[in-house]
Structure formats: C-alpha cells, structure tokens
C-alpha cells in the first residue's frame, strides 16, 4: 500500500506531512502563552487532559511573522512530547504516488530548511516536510 500523506496549507503553500507521524487533527481550544520561549512556540493548549506544546508553523519558517488565525492544528508526538502544529488549513489525506524524490529547485526562505523532498500526490507535485524541523524552529539549525 502506498504511503498516506496529510496535505496541509502552511503560509499559503500546499505541503505534505507523512500521515503515519500524525496522531490527529484538532481545533485548538484556548492557548496559554509561554513567556521566554522562541517565537515559533505559540504556547500551550490542553487536549483531553494532555498539555500540547503549540508550534506556529509560519513563525517556524520565518521568525518575523506569525500565523494569522489559531484554528486547525496537527497533533504529533515527537520524542515523547505531544505537539500541536498550527497550520493555515488541513486539506486532505491522500495516497502518495511513487517515492519521494529530491527537491529539484531552489527553495526560498525557511522552506529549504523544512523540506525533505518532493512527492507526487493526486497528480500534483507537493513538498514533503520534516515535522521535527518545524518543532525545533528557525534557531535550532544555526546553533
């Protein structure tokens, strides 16, 4: 069976996340800010008695900007910690067509950091992105 991909929209771009890494898609209820953290950490949110660390994917691409609206979030668990990735919109779950290939173009801005490859899905070429890089944020690589 082909790999399943979750198609989301981040900063206007249509990108694919490996669906196997995604626990669920939720709408966040409330956001508690965390003082003193990097800008891409939007805060904490409670989900079924769990505390999610909320990641602003737009800020993670470009630390000077942030997401327009707190709405759809993708819940993932990385290294035992639950996170909610804030995205513009969650579009669909699709089957990947073929294997991911290397990115054959020059990516702009933060995209070059998060992209792991390109993949064909539903007839469209989509950027496959690394959830972990979104979580560690723009400063992690530099350090």
């Amino acid at each position: 069976m082909a790999d399943l991909l979750l198609i989301v929209r981040i900063d206007g771009e249509r990108v694919a996340l490996p669906a196997g890494d995604v626990e669920s898609v939720v709408e966040l209820e409330g956001l508690t800010p965390v003082p003193g953290v990097p800008r891409h950490v939007a805060g904490l949110s409670a989900l079924r008695s769990r505390v999610l660390t909320v990641i602003d994917c737009v800020a993670s691409l470009d630390p000077l900007r942030s997401i327009a609206l707190v709405g759809d979030a993708v819940v993932v668990v990385v290294e035992g910690h639950p996170y909610a990735l804030l995205v513009d919109a969650v579009e669909d779950v699709v089957e990947a067509e073929g294997e991911p290939g290397p990115v054959r173009t020059a990516l702009t801005g933060g995209w070059s950091r998060v992209a792991t490859g390109m993949i064909e899905a539903e007839g469209q070429l989509t950027l496959l992105v690394d959830i972990g890089v979104f979580i560690s944020g723009p400063l992690a690589r530099a350090a």
Binding site: V34, V51, H81, S136
Partner: peptide, 23 residues
C-alpha cells in the same frame, strides 16, 4: 515534562493542568 523548547529557557520545570482545564 515540558517540551525541550520550554525546558531550554531554564525558566520552567514542567507543565500541568489546573482545575479549570488550562495548562
């Protein structure tokens, strides 16, 4: 335990939920 991004600030030791359900 709090996520690494929170722990690395050195300000926090963990997270919890209050009675009102807020983190």
């Amino acid at each position: 335990p709090a996520a690494p991004a929170l722990m690395s600030t050195g300000l926090y030791a963990g997270t919890t939920l209050a009675d009102d359900g807020k983190p």
